[in-house]
Design a protein around this nucleic acid. Structure first.
Lengths: 110, 110
DNA sequence: AAACTATATCGTAATATTGCAATATTAAAT
DNA sequence: ATTTAATATTGCAATATTACGATATAGTTT
């Protein structure tokens, strides 16, 4: 026990969960917000922006990349990370869909 | 170490992370989708809808409630759980904000 | 080539999450 | 009051996450 039973859920459910999980840590939210703030992708000072040690930041970046929320490429001795717009769109569309279905609901007991 | 350093991040960042984390598990995504599908809040058979044991489902429901994604009240010997629209709205607005800022960006190197 | 700079990986400790059997709680039904 | 039905809590094992020091890697600069 202890491992998530991903095989019992749909691909879409797992996909949303993966994206949501990646944003389930304030440091990773902060990274996304920083990438949004700077208007270029060459952002070699993410480490200095966060209150965490360099290996920890590197790890969070890796998780964001694995989840597909950011794209990154090697650029000399620094790294170019960007937000993956498609991932953000997926999340936005998902929640927009829930919202619109909720407003169409007949009853709202709670 | 091992505990998230929430105190180093802004309230808004922590709030988004909390909501995202709650949806960071496919079972909890499935629960939200089920609550959306049924048009009433009296949904006493969430357990039968999920491929997990009853205590596990109960735990996931608790996490969703703690995070503020669902509201629930005792209704006789069953429970009335509903999606908290405000929480979904928060997420939707957040990602919509990121999306619109991204499209306004000058450069998109990656 | 050697020094410098920036990011990644390894190893490990502390903590959190996931899942479920057993049990408790709570209210309705008989 | 006892049974029934549904959800919650407890306790625990397996696994995952978080964080960082030490070290490795890779490119740039001198």
């Amino acid at each position: 026990m202890g491992a998530t039973k991903t095989e019992h859920f749909t691909d879409k459910q797992n996909a949303i969960a993966t994206l949501a999980k990646a944003l389930g840590h304030p440091a990773r939210v902060a990274i996304i917000e920083y990438l949004m703030k700077v208007d270029t992708c060459i952002c070699g000072d993410i480490v200095n922006e966060l209150p965490l040690a360099q290996p920890t930041v590197s790890q969070h970046l890796k998780e964001l990349k694995t989840a597909g929320l950011i794209k990154g490429e090697i650029e000399g001795n620094s790294i170019c990370y960007c937000i993956n717009e498609k991932a953000i769109e997926k999340l936005q569309n998902y929640f927009a869909g829930i919202s619109s279905k909720l407003t169409n609901k007949k009853t709202n007991c709670c």
